[in-house]
Simulated assay, not measured.
Amino acid sequence: MTIRVVVADDQDLVRAGFAMILDAQPDIEVVAEAGDGFAAVGLAREHAPDVVLLDIRMPGMDGIEAARVICAETASKVVMLTTFDHDDYLFDALRAGASGFLLKDVRRDDLVHAVRAVTSGDSLLAPSVTRTLIAAFTSGSAALPLQASRLAALTARETETLRLLGAGLSNAEIAAALVVSEHTVKTHVSNVLAKLALRDRVQAVIAAYETGLIHPGTRAH
């Protein structure tokens, strides 16, 4: 299967560089490039790509608003591009439905891995962005609207799956912890996402924190 990508960044060299790296992969095709959010939304509607790489700060419609529209209107996965790991728009982008963040100085191999990962249903955050996210939860500045009462919709096993997701475990690690197959874990994860109306694993991690299911520093056991 060929992964179809739209790259949106207002810096020509950055956009061209990312497109060149991705187009060089046998399983990835850059179907279009955009220099602002309006163009990115239009191209996402036109091409229905698997992944849209969106710069956070662009003229006209910024990446946050573009992500909100793309995630609401299409099935495309959105990965935000940022220059700074302390970007003020981190949480707004995650609320908008972004599947992850990459810093613009990302290594070639990590960029390619990111596109493949979100296409397969995984989510990602650059390590430094993850630290920013956890620090915000520690300080209480990332309060989000999901209430703990929403967890009542989950079965006991689904709640435990969410807790382990929040602790950063992979499907294989969750399977080992729960002594079940990876297929069963995938079913639990899918149920959690559906019942809590979450787009992907990034939002599941956030949900685990905002409902108080886990706290910064929690370790799986």
Rank of each mutant, 00 (worst) to 15 (best):
A19E: 03
P145R: 00
E160Q: 08
E46M: 13
I70S: 00
D55I: 03
P145T: 03
I206Y: 12
F18L: 02
R201S: 08
P59D: 15
M80K: 03
H47V: 12
F18G: 00
Q25M: 02
A66I: 03
M61C: 13
A156I: 05
S190W: 06
A40V: 04
R95I: 06
A16W: 07
T184Q: 11
L43F: 15
T187F: 10
I21R: 00
L102A: 07
L213R: 11
T119C: 08
N191Q: 05
V51K: 08
V30W: 03
R219N: 13
D9G: 01
E173N: 05
G42L: 09
L144T: 07
R108N: 06
T161R: 00
A156L: 05
M1R: 08
V179A: 14
A167S: 15
M1D: 07
A142P: 15
A148G: 10
A194D: 14
D88P: 15
D105Q: 11
I206P: 12
G100A: 13
G168D: 01
A93C: 13
I134E: 06
V179T: 15
A176T: 14
F137H: 08
D36G: 14
E33L: 06
D50R: 14
F38K: 10
A175V: 06
P145A: 00
R4Q: 13
V41C: 11
Q147F: 04
L54M: 10
V180F: 03
D9E: 00
A167R: 13
D87V: 09
S123K: 04
V52S: 06
L193D: 13
A96H: 01
A75K: 02
R95F: 04
D62Y: 13
V118P: 02
V31P: 01
V189R: 07
T130L: 11
G35V: 05
L165I: 15
